[in-house]
């Protein structure tokens, strides 16, 4: 399954979501830029399509570039070990310290719980609960059992560029 096939599948499942597909940095990985709010549909396709089956959210990284927050979802597949893809979206906060909101992918990739909490603490990216009609079966429910906290004195989002200024 090469990148063009994946992109066309995404286009069919979530029309209008894909903005661009290009090489990630100088590596062999593909990065697919999508519309931020359509991450849920894309995630569902990438996880549950049997030919793609990217079932590991390896990393969710948030970067602030020129005032926008870029989310990168690094995906791996246990069924196709050499397949790796980055799904990226960008959001612009209204003011420098405002929160942004994006759908959560916890229902698709439960391992994202910790990563999303961290993104919220450090960057102020709020992940709203999934509105997928068909939520996949969860064996373990521990969204409420894991939390990362900062000391109370910290206000705002520390990893933003203009924090403290």
């Amino acid at each position: 399954m090469d990148k063009n096939q994946i992109v066309s599948k995404i286009n069919r499942a979530a029309p209008g979501a894909v903005l661009e597909a290009r090489r990630f940095g100088r590596s062999d990985m593909t990065s697919v830029w999508i519309e931020a709010q359509s991450i849920e549909k894309v995630a569902e396709l990438l996880r549950f399509d049997p030919d793609i089956s990217l079932d590991w959210l390896e990393n969710l990284s948030v970067v602030e570039l020129d005032g926008c927050l870029v989310l990168s979802y690094f995906l791996l597949s246990t069924a196709h070990p050499k397949l790796e893809i980055v799904v990226r979206s960008s959001l612009v906060p209204d003011t420098l310290q405002a929160e942004v909101e994006v759908p959560s992918v916890q229902a698709v990739w439960p391992m994202g719980i910790a990563m999303e909490q961290e993104a919220h603490l450090l960057f102020g990216v709020r992940f709203r609960a999934s509105s997928l009609e068909h939520k996949p079966k969860q064996d373990f429910d521990f969204g409420r059992l894991f939390s990362t906290k900062f000391p109370d004195e910290i206000r705002g989002f520390p990893l933003r560029k203009k924090y403290g200024k």
């Binding site: 390896e58 990393n59 990284s61 948030v62 970067v63 602030e64 570039l65 990168s72 690094f74 391992m111 719980i113 910790a114 990563m115 521990f142 894991f146």
Partner: peptide, 24 residues
């Protein structure tokens, strides 16, 4: 994950660490 914008310091360095999954 390293992001550089050509300046003298990194724009972003993000580490994905294995212990987070164990804690979860």
């Amino acid at each position: 994950h390293v992001v550089s914008d050509g300046r003298n310091s990194p724009s972003r360095v993000q580490f994905r660490t294995p212990t987070v999954a164990n804690l979860l």
